[in-house]
């Protein structure tokens, strides 16, 4: 029995060492990507192509989800607020929850599962089919040519996607409460406008989405580049991208929120 306990403890220790090692390895890779970003910035066409795949192709899911999230928020908010006779504050509720939290967070979660997994799978497959090795043999650095453009495209897309998500959400809330239920349009907007502050709400939401963009794409490109060059390896890496980035998004959100809104309001 004691041997079993020892081996269980050993197992835990092994896992901890492994994860710390991996974290360090990922950080080194992240810095490497940043150092080798010169090519993508000089040849912006490379980033443009990836912007299409990460940004434009994620639009549909972002727009539709944003609309529905906003509509649900509007409906639920109205149900609750009308009990206190303050249904005109529903605009404030929808806008604040979207701009501060739901916009950046849900958009980032969707982005991780839509674009992040695609990035991992693509880089992982390029590695498995020796395309990255072939590139290295042609004296072209795969990190500069393949990884960095995808990274920057993700970083650029994320804030835009989050903003589009929030706007669609506000529109969805407006649609349900003002157009369908009949809340007064003037007070919907004016209450929202007096409650939402540019610096504390919108700018902070924007900053959050920038952080999420960096985190999600960094995880996605690392998992792809690090994936074992087999079919199971790539599929495992894709799953890890989605799981890890979702956890990182939520954890990071808490940390950022604590920093941003501490002492304010």
């Amino acid at each position: 029995m004691p041997r079993r306990i020892v081996s269980a403890v050993q197992h835990i220790g092994h896992r901890v060492i492994e994860s710390i090692w991996r974290l360090g390895y990922a950080s080194r890779f992240f810095i490497l990507v940043l150092l080798k970003s010169g090519t993508s910035l000089r040849r912006f066409g490379l980033v443009m192509r990836e912007l299409y795949f990460t940004g434009v192709l994620s639009l549909i899911i972002i727009v539709v989800s944003g609309l529905f999230v906003g509509m649900v928020l509007g409906l639920q908010g109205y149900e609750t607020l009308q009990k206190y006779g303050s249904e005109s504050a529903v605009g404030t509720l929808v806008a604040l929850s979207l701009v501060r939290e739901l916009g950046p967070v849900v958009a980032a979660l969707l982005f991780a599962s839509r674009a992040g997994s695609a990035i991992t799978a693509e880089i992982g497959l390029m590695k498995a089919t020796e395309q990255l090795a072939a590139m290295g043999m042609m004296a072209v650095d795969p990190v500069a040519r393949v990884v960095a453009p995808r990274f920057w495209a993700g970083v650029i897309s994320m804030p835009f996607l989050a903003a589009i998500f929030s706007v669609m959400g506000v529109f969805g809330g407006y649609l349900v409460t003002v157009v369908f239920i009949g809340v007064d349009e003037g007070s919907f907007w004016s209450q929202m406008q007096s409650a939402v502050d540019f610096r504390f709400d919108i700018l902070n939401g924007f900053i959050k989405s920038c952080f999420f963009g960096v985190a999600v794409t960094a995880i996605a490109v690392f998992e792809g580049y690090d994936a074992p060059p087999t079919a199971e390896g790539v599929s495992g890496a894709t799953t890890r991208t989605v799981v890890t980035s979702s956890l990182v998004i939520l954890g990071l959100d808490f940390i950022l929120t604590a920093f941003m809104f501490r002492g304010v309001s």
Binding site: A95, P159, A163, V167, V196
Partner: peptide, 13 residues
């Protein structure tokens, strides 16, 4: 994306 950011700043915020 830029229009969305502007709507957020001007209309919502």
């Amino acid at each position: 994306g830029i229009i969305a950011l502007m709507i957020l700043s001007l209309k919502v915020g």
